[in-house]
């Protein structure tokens, strides 16, 4: 017996970390032809990439792994000469998918933030299982993706197994 939930590791994603003030953000917006999400917890989800707002001057651009190089170069060139930081952080994080009717029963063991307040498509960062995580809400109450620092990936895998109700 265990919770009704499916947990798996994510693969084939790329994460690019962006830091920059308003003036450089417009450069990125021009290059990607989008408007960056500017308020807390918001994200822009499109077919080619997602843009997650993590702080007032901090975003993640998430795309398929095969587009990592190309996107990194486009974003870097867009702000060359400006004070901005574009960093590939794909390898710094490990992603997990948690879905099912009992997804929140698992997440609430690790997150202490108020999960009621997060709607589908939103994102946030918070303490999780003593190592911290970035959380994306795919479908509120049913499907979530979270990223932890890669050095914690084995620990978090074990943690998720335990949280589901499995033994090992």
């Amino acid at each position: 017996m265990s919770y009704q939930v499916e947990v798996s590791s994510l693969a084939h994603y790329a994460l690019i970390n962006l830091r920059g003030e308003t003036q450089v953000t417009t450069n990125w917006e021009a290059v990607l032809d989008v408007t960056f999400p500017k308020s807390a917890h918001t994200a822009l989800i499109s077919r080619a990439f997602s843009i997650l707002s993590l702080a007032s001057d901090h975003w993640w651009v998430r795309t398929a792994l095969k587009n990592e190089d190309e996107l990194f170069h486009r974003l870097s060139e867009a702000v060359s000469g400006e004070h901005a930081a574009v960093t590939v952080v794909t390898d710094h994080f490990q992603g997990f998918s948690i879905k099912g009717p009992d997804a929140v029963a698992v997440l609430r063991q690790g997150f202490s933030l108020d999960l009621r307040r997060l709607e589908s498509g939103q994102c946030t960062r918070g303490g999780f299982a003593r190592c911290g995580a970035t959380l994306q809400v795919v479908e509120s109450g049913r499907a979530y993706e979270l990223f932890v620092e890669a050095s914690y990936s084995e620990y978090v895998e074990r943690w998720l197994k335990m949280a589901q109700g499995h033994t090992f």
């Binding site: 917890h41 007032s56 918070g126």
Partner: peptide, 10 residues
Amino acid sequence: PWCGPRNETE
């Protein structure tokens, strides 16, 4: 101010 109220352990 950005994330809203959170436990002090964060």
